[in-house]
Amino acid sequence: MSKTIENAFLTAEGCYVALTSEHLSYQDIIDRVRSPEAGAIVVFAGTTRDTFQSKPVKELQYTSYPPLALRTMLTIATTICAKHALKGIAMIHRLGTVPIGEESIIIAVSSPHRQAAWRAGEEALEECKEKVEVWKREEFEGEEGVWRANRDGAAGVRVDENKKGEEGE
């Protein structure tokens, strides 16, 4: 999956979900949920942190199964949109190399009043982290990278050279 993914997205009424290998734009995401009926827009941005359990992280690599990830994101978006009576919800995740300190995900939601927007924003992020078919690999200085797993916060699976499976006949 090293080939760069351009921009892939899905939409439903009031919902926009996307994957991109480009920088994320707050303005673009906010404008997608803007509505004259909304009194609140809540935006969440996930940014890449420079350490994992105090080990310095050089950069992060995100990979995905785009058709499935988009489908899962749209299911989350439509469910949360209906549940909280939102005017709009937009979620975009960046793929490929994301340097430290940059945005890897932005979620924006709009609703008539702020309480629903706060709640929906948090719920959308938690659902994404639990379900969306995107994987993060942390690259460390001077040692092999590690695939993270959101489920347990553990270090994920490290595959050393000597443990690597040999292909059979």
Partner: peptide, 10 residues
């Protein structure tokens, strides 16, 4: 068919 390890978006 796809093998889907534990996900880690965000």
């Amino acid at each position: 068919v796809a093998i889907i390890p534990p996900v880690s978006s965000g």
